[in-house]
Design a protein around this nucleic acid. Structure first.
Lengths: 133, 133
DNA sequence: TTTTTTGCAAAAGCTTTGCAAAAAT
DNA sequence: ATTTTTGCAAAGCTTTTGCAAAAAA
């Protein structure tokens, strides 16, 4: 199992490989448009619509994390192996991954308490990092 | 201090009052367009642009909570007094407010651990409520 | 050959902005 | 008289979609 492997019914096209490889070339969150631009600079241009379609499928397949910025733009990042949350610097965007087993447990019990099932959650922490603060 | 009071340099216009009052007529999150429509039905039509501008200012002033749906749409709700989180039904949108002092403490300590200051966070829990599940 | 994917351009949807008229100070 | 706010229509943006050509199975 290589890291560029894809799941399900996706045909391994040049474009899809390019997007997946691009996703592995950075560790923070990028917008679809930024990724599209990056691909162009790399000399592997992929149509913007294709970038959107590919990222959406990768997100559905759980192969990339998808977030929304405060102004509603979708941003994507390759997944790490375990479920975790993000500590993001408001100024420079520096991201730290944090795990929170306690939070996982808490959300599940709160949900159960109110009769909710199939629980998922999103938790993002914002702050000013040491360099920017 | 009445509940329709406004802060800072906002002039108390008919439209602004209408938006603030509309916000107090429901307890869940609504989009700007829904609020605009609601105002029309109430017989107090307010221009869509004005609704957007007003909601933005109220959000900046901390008088309403602003969230993003999964597809990037901004939704608004009047603030309750205390900081809390939301347990939202994926199917019908039913919302329960939950408090989590433990979470507050945890996020602050995680952030401090990484040298981040001025911490804020967002936590939303999604699930299927008893009626929909 | 049949099915999926691409790329382009057009459309969609939410949100913002320019500007002159109206309202508040 | 000044300054802010409104409403409309016109952009602006990100994202989605239709469709014919290209690629994969």
């Amino acid at each position: 199992m290589t890291s560029t492997e894809q799941s399900g019914g996706m045909r391994p096209t040049k474009q899809r490989r390019a997007v997946v490889e691009a996703m592995e070339s950075f560790a923070d969150f990028r917008s679809a448009q930024e990724i599209h631009e990056l691909l162009g600079e790399r000399g592997e241009p992929v149509g913007l619509a294709t970038v959107y379609r590919t990222l959406q499928r990768l997100a559905d397949a759980g192969e990339v994390d998808q977030l929304r910025t405060e102004d509603g733009e979708a941003i994507y990042r390759r997944c790490s192996e375990t479920h975790h949350h993000h500590l993001v610097c408001r100024e420079c965007g520096a991201t730290v991954e944090v795990e929170g087993p306690a939070v996982e447990r808490w959300t599940r019990s709160i949900a159960a308490e109110h009769g909710y099932g199939e629980v998922s959650h999103t938790l993002e922490i914002f702050g000013t990092c040491a360099r920017c603060g």
